[in-house]
Amino acid sequence: MAEKQRYRRLGLFVVLALTILAGLLFVLGGRSLFAPTLVFETYFDKSVSGLGVGAQVSFRGVPLGQVSEIVMSTVAYENGVPFEQRAAFIVVRTKLSATSAQVEQWQAELPEYVRRGLRAQTQLAGITGQQYLALDYFDPEKYPEPTVAWTPDYPVVPSAPSMTGEIIGSAQQFLASLNEADIGSLGQNLDRLVLTLDDKIGRVPVDALSADADSLIKEARTLVEHLDEVITQAPIDEAVGDIASASARLNALLALPALEQTLDNTAALTNRLRTLAAREELDTMIASLARAVQRIDALVGDNQYDVRVVVEDLRATADNLRTLSETAKRYPAGVLFGAPPKKADFPWNRTK
Score class of each variant (00 low, 15 high):
334 G>M: 10
290 A>T: 08
326 E>P: 08
310 V>R: 02
250 L>G: 13
278 A>G: 04
244 A>K: 11
334 G>Y: 07
270 T>R: 02
325 S>L: 14
279 R>K: 07
291 R>Y: 09
313 D>I: 12
296 I>Y: 01
257 P>V: 10
255 A>F: 15
283 D>K: 06
297 D>F: 00
302 D>I: 01
242 D>M: 14
265 N>C: 07
329 K>E: 15
244 A>C: 03
269 L>F: 03
250 L>H: 12
247 S>H: 14
326 E>H: 13
312 E>R: 10
247 S>A: 14
269 L>R: 02
298 A>C: 01
287 A>G: 06
254 L>A: 15
260 E>N: 02
280 E>A: 05
273 L>H: 10
321 L>S: 12
305 Y>C: 00
268 A>K: 02
333 A>V: 13
278 A>S: 06
278 A>T: 05
259 L>I: 11
262 T>D: 11
325 S>K: 14
252 A>S: 14
261 Q>H: 05
273 L>M: 13
274 R>H: 04
290 A>V: 10
279 R>G: 07
262 T>R: 12
290 A>S: 07
333 A>D: 08
287 A>I: 02
249 R>F: 15
248 A>L: 05
271 N>Q: 10
285 M>T: 10
262 T>Q: 12
295 R>Q: 05
334 G>L: 12
317 T>P: 15
277 A>T: 06
278 A>M: 04
332 P>K: 06
242 D>V: 15
262 T>G: 08
295 R>F: 06
308 R>N: 09
280 E>K: 04
289 L>V: 08
294 Q>D: 05
278 A>K: 04
276 L>P: 08
298 A>Y: 00
306 D>K: 01
286 I>A: 01
302 D>S: 00
245 S>G: 07
291 R>K: 10
259 L>K: 05
279 R>S: 07
